Computed example of a mutant assay.
Amino acid sequence: PHPPARAVNANGPPFPPPARAYHPLRADTREPDDGPPDNSPLAYAPTPETVGDRADRLFSKVTLSLKGVEEEQRARVEQLTVDAGDAASNIEKVLTRFKIAVPEQAAVKPDDDDDDSAVGGPYAEPENGDNFNNSLAQLDTALTRLEAVRSTAEALPFRNPAIGKEITSPFGNRRDPFLGRLALHSGVDFRFAAGETIRPTAPGKVVNAGWTGGYGNMVEIDHGNGISTRYGHMSEILVKAGDMVGRSDVIGLAGSTGRSTGTHLHYEVRQNGRAVDPVYFLNAGLKLATYIK
């Protein structure tokens, strides 16, 4: 059928077509929507966590936590290794200065069952599968070296025999108090009160204990490595030759026996039989104070 004829206005343009009636139930009468389309996503409902999912999540957290702990422990072990190496090097410097033999680091002996008579192959770098165990091995090596040099230093007379006491006569040439002429004073004199206890500056073996000429009552202790110490002018000797003594043992009482003008301790350090200035050892002891007991 033909569309209906449009009404014509005799004095102007044609009348506009009549508006279409809108019916709420008819789709063909709905006006177009000029707004944007609704592109919002559909609502998502997560699936509930299973026991296996929770176990996996917890395992991942534990693994990360353990890895962090291992890294911290390895860093601590590496720092301890560096500290032990530095301490050993500092002790070695002092021992070398006094021409004391530095002990060699103990070598790892191969097992008796190892047979190298028919083995070989190209060299390849060792596997680095267990860094933490490697760090522990390096720490063990550093501590072994430190213990070796520390034990050597602790056996030598680096301590003060008279802490807080006044030095009345140093080592070296001086005017002899009895002859009035120049003479070598082979030790250091410390002022003591009569009867005060005397202790050795390092452990060792008593090689002489008795009256010894100008020393009066004297004790001499061998500390090994060619080093010995002498303690003179004592009023009483409390050890005998052959005794093994430690730093805390009392070896005698202060006095004024022998060539002495008053109560004091005459202290000597001898290296290979030759008297050396004890102050050198005392100063070295101050540097070693943080490393030895």
Rank of each mutant, 00 (worst) to 15 (best):
N9K: 11
P13L: 14
P18L: 14
L25Y: 11
L25K: 13
R26K: 10
R26V: 03
A27M: 12
D34C: 06
G35S: 14
P37K: 05
P41A: 06
Y44K: 07
A45E: 14
T50D: 08
T50L: 05
T50W: 01
G52P: 01
D53G: 08
S60P: 04
K61V: 12
V62F: 13
S65Y: 13
K67E: 14
G68W: 01
E70R: 15
L80K: 07
T81H: 10
E92T: 12
F98G: 05
F98N: 10
A101T: 14
K109F: 03
P110V: 02
D111S: 08
D112H: 04
D112P: 02
D113C: 05
D114L: 13
A118C: 10
G121H: 04
P126D: 10
G129A: 12
G129V: 11
G129Q: 08
N133T: 10
D140P: 01
L146P: 00
E147T: 11
A148P: 01
A148L: 08
R150I: 02
A153Y: 06
A153E: 03
E154F: 03
E154R: 04
A155D: 02
L156V: 01
P157T: 10
P170I: 06
R174G: 07
R175I: 15
D176N: 04
L179D: 12
R181C: 07
L182M: 12
L184Q: 14
S186L: 11
D189T: 00
F190W: 00
G195E: 06
P200D: 02
A202F: 01
A202H: 02
K205S: 11
V207G: 09
G210E: 12
G210W: 12
W211H: 05
T212C: 12
E220D: 11
I221A: 03
D222L: 01
G224E: 02
N225H: 14
R230L: 10
E236S: 05
I237E: 01
L238T: 07
V239R: 00
D243I: 00
V245P: 01
G246N: 12
G246F: 03
L253K: 13
L253T: 07
L253Q: 08
T257A: 03
T257I: 07
H266C: 00
V269E: 00
N272V: 07
A275I: 03
V276I: 10
D277I: 03
F281M: 07
L282K: 05
L282F: 08
N283R: 15
A284F: 07
A284T: 10
T290L: 15
